[in-house]
Amino acid sequence: MSWQPAASQQMLRKRAGLLARVRDYFRREEVLEVETPIMSRYGNPDPAINSFRTDSDQHPEQYLHTSPEFPMKRLLASRSGSIYQICKVFREEETGRYHNPEFTMLEWYRIGFDHYQLMDDVEAMIIELLPNLMAFERHTFQTLFKNHVGLDPLEATLEELSAKAESLGVVLPEQVERDWLLDVLFDLSVGDWLKQSGGVFVYNYPASMASLAQISPQDSRVAERFELYIDGIELANGFHELQDAAEQKTRFEKDLASREAQGMDQPPIDQDFLDALAVGLPDCSGVALGLDRLLMLQTGAEHIKEVIAFPG
């Protein structure tokens, strides 16, 4: 019957157990749990993400957050120390086996960590929650791309990337962007290998693909970002966080220009977040992890609807 939950009672108990174990991990690590608002005057400028907007006669238009990142960084700038949050987030036009428009995110920030140390942190927590998982592999984006696509993502021209995509049957849009091609080629060519490889950290992405990460001091073509895949499922996305307010504003403006070129809406830039960066964000790394997907991996669920009481 339609009023009943999609998740079984056993699954709901497993979900509660997962949340308790996550909180226990951070309690032992002395990381503070925080809460931040779900609604904001500012949307996400990322061209790959669409925010839900409110419609009210009594209040100005607001956005449901796609991540608690910006207000959490305001807490970090106020010297909160290392923090984490478990919350519902919302992304428009996302639905499918691993996507629900409303889902549960775990996001945390570690003061004094670079992205390598944060990968260690993520791995330690995941091994507690998925004890049957074998040791994690770590590969740079460049290495995997070269091995599976046959091109260097840091050196290949737009024409070379386009030709490779077309050879794989990709229909290119009229105005094709380099980052879109890198994403598509990575998914098509590396995706099957990831499904057979257990836990894999992919790190050091091209600089253009990490709008909130620091640029590597060893190679300015690379940003200090990682993603974690387990059995081919994208589970977490982390950064050695950018601290430069002026550079962050420039990147936001570039994102908005890309959105405009694609006919997308133009959410206002979060000035409160930029002001916090200007005051001073401590050196830190942060990561967002999809808890619904983690529960799917823990229980062997085939669809995200199996692990959410009332999916959208």
Rank of each mutant, 00 (worst) to 15 (best):
Asn204Leu: 15
His240Phe: 00
Asp270Phe: 04
Pro217Trp: 00
Met105Lys: 14
Leu32Val: 03
Ser51Val: 11
Ser82Asn: 00
Leu75Ser: 10
Gly199Leu: 01
Arg97Thr: 00
Ile111Lys: 01
His59Ile: 05
Ala236Gln: 07
Pro153Leu: 10
Pro71His: 00
Leu168Val: 01
Glu128Ile: 00
Leu291Trp: 00
Arg221Gln: 15
Phe310Leu: 14
Leu185Ile: 03
Lys305Ser: 13
Val184Asn: 07
Ser40Met: 12
Glu302Asn: 02
Glu224Pro: 09
Arg259Trp: 10
Asp244Asn: 15
Ala7Met: 05
Arg15Val: 11
Leu274Ala: 07
Ile230Val: 12
Val307Leu: 02
Ala309Ser: 10
Asp270Met: 06
Ala20Pro: 01
Gly43His: 02
Asp231Arg: 11
Ala301Leu: 06
Glu253Met: 13
His148Val: 08
Asp179Arg: 13
Ala163Tyr: 09
Leu185Val: 01
Val122Phe: 05
Ala163Ile: 07
Gly17Phe: 02
Ile230Arg: 01
Leu161Ala: 14
Ala236Val: 02
Glu35Ile: 10
Lys146Met: 12
Trp193Gly: 00
Gly150Asn: 01
Ser78Gly: 04
Asp275Phe: 10
Ser258Met: 12
Val184Phe: 02
Arg41Thr: 07
Phe239Arg: 04
Gln218Ile: 04
Gly199Met: 01
Arg74Glu: 02
Gly290Gln: 09
Leu130Met: 11
Trp108Gly: 07
Arg15Ala: 10
Leu19Cys: 10
Ser67Leu: 02
His65Trp: 02
Ile83Asp: 06
Leu130Lys: 13
Ser162Gly: 09
Ala213His: 13
Leu151Ser: 10
Ala16Lys: 14
Asp55Trp: 10
Asp272Tyr: 04
Ala6Leu: 05
Asp179Gln: 15
Pro45Gln: 05
Phe239Lys: 06
Leu172Arg: 01
Ser258Asn: 14
Leu181Ala: 09
Asp244Arg: 03
Leu172His: 07
Arg15Asn: 07
Gly280Ser: 00
Lys73Thr: 03
Arg79Ser: 08
Asn147Met: 04
Arg15Pro: 06
Asp270Lys: 00
Leu64Glu: 04
Glu35Val: 12
Val89Cys: 15
Lys88Ser: 13
Leu12Arg: 15
Trp193Lys: 08
Ala223Met: 10
Gln9Gly: 02
Val89Thr: 14
Ser167Gly: 08
Ala309Asn: 00
Leu76Asn: 00
Asp283Ser: 05
Ser220Arg: 05
Tyr42Ala: 03
Met296Phe: 12
Val89Leu: 12
Ala210Leu: 11
Arg97Ile: 02
Ala276Phe: 04
Met134Arg: 07
Gly169Asn: 09
Ser189Asn: 02
Asn237Ala: 15
Thr157Arg: 11
Glu247Leu: 15
Ala163Pro: 01
Arg138Phe: 11
Asp275Ser: 15
Arg293Gln: 01
Ala261Gln: 15
Gln58Ile: 03
Ser40Cys: 13
Leu242Pro: 05
Ile308Tyr: 04
Phe252Asp: 02
Gln10Glu: 14
Ala48Trp: 06
Asp231Pro: 04
Glu69Pro: 03
Ser80Lys: 06
Val34Tyr: 06
Arg138Ile: 11
Ile83Cys: 07
Ala213Asp: 11
Glu102Arg: 14
Ala20Asp: 05
Ile38Trp: 10
Glu128Ser: 01
Gln262Tyr: 03
Lys254Tyr: 11
Phe310Cys: 14
Val222Lys: 13
Leu151Gln: 09
Phe52Val: 05
